[in-house]
């Protein structure tokens, strides 16, 4: 496997990375675990790589009051090992690839790639994460729900760099969970469901739910959330809420040899239910 020829520049700061990319019309690379394979298959020919992998300031999980900041270069292995993050995130990160992939692959690279079958976009959407994006003229913040815009598409411009993802810190009374139907070959998500539920006196006071894997990008599930709010978390109520996911999926359902669109739609409610049940148990 031999990629086409490319130039290589290594950035030591975010500012330098953005300047180098602009100067050489390059592509950012963090862990390289999405980019290098497609280059080796000659499906991508970026011509120039700007390696951001050694910008140490972008690495690490850092609690900051009511939120926890995750540097874009934090590896999946670090997220999986973290005690600071809401449960759904370490849970999902532990299911990405294999130990070698988790030791090299980064949160920022994964999220910026926006693979529809990826796990983190779904979890970050459910957690109400905020994405911090650096550009030529400074930085801006975008909510996760607005960040993932389509199949391999995000709200970022080519000249922008994702630097940080922040999520709400763990809170008493709130449980989070991620449930996933694994693709038997790739172990990516055929369907992934992430839930954050806040309980008060045995009823759900609020919930955020997201679904991924079967849609072009991770989606918030407003109908499920509405069906959960104010309800006692009995099995019947959870099931009814999970079944409401059908209204949140839209018309564009992915289909392949592993899972038809019909099957995926059915699995959406199964895994939303499993994620809610698990999150309630953790609240």
């Amino acid at each position: 496997m031999y990629p086409p020829k490319f130039d290589y520049h290594r950035a030591s700061s975010v500012e330098e990375a953005i300047a180098l990319r602009k100067e050489h019309d390059g592509k950012f690379m963090a862990g390289g675990h999405s980019l290098i394979p497609v280059m080796k298959l000659r499906l991508a020919d970026p011509g120039c790589i700007v390696d951001i992998g050694r910008i140490d300031a972008l690495r690490g999980v850092c609690p900051d009051g009511a939120t926890v900041k995750i540097g874009a270069l934090t590896t999946h292995a670090s997220v999986h090992a973290s005690d600071e993050l809401p449960d759904a995130l370490p849970e999902a990160a532990g299911w990405i690839g294999d130990p070698m992939v988790r030791n090299r692959g980064t949160v920022g690279g994964n999220v910026a790639h926006a693979d529809p079958s990826s796990d983190l976009p779904t979890v970050l959407t459910a957690l109400g994460a905020t994405m911090k994006i650096a550009g030529d003229g400074g930085s801006r913040e975008v909510a996760a729900a607005d960040f993932f815009t389509g199949l391999f598409e995000t709200a970022m411009g080519e000249d922008e760099l994702l630097t940080e993802v922040s999520v709400p810190a763990k809170a008493a009374g709130t449980g989070t969970a991620y449930s996933k139907l694994f693709n038997p070959a790739s172990r990516y998500a055929i369907v992934g469901a992430a839930v954050s539920v806040t309980m008060s006196n045995g009823t759900c006071s609020s919930a955020t739910v997201a679904i991924g894997g079967l849609t072009p990008n991770a989606k918030r599930c407003g109908s499920v959330e509405a069906a959960l709010a104010g309800k006692e978390m009995s099995e019947a109520n959870i099931e009814a809420a999970a079944n409401a996911v059908a209204a949140d999926l839209g018309d564009d359902i992915l289909s392949d040899i592993h899972a038809s669109a019909d099957y995926r739609k059915k699995m959406a409610s199964v895994f939303v239910k499993r994620a809610i049940t698990k999150a309630v148990g953790r609240a």
């Binding site: 038997p184 392949d256 040899i257 592993h258």
Partner: peptide, 11 residues
């Protein structure tokens, strides 16, 4: 071939 890599061929 629809199963030309380990992404789609399940070992």
């Amino acid at each position: 071939l629809l199963t030309g890599s380990f992404l789609d061929y399940a070992m």
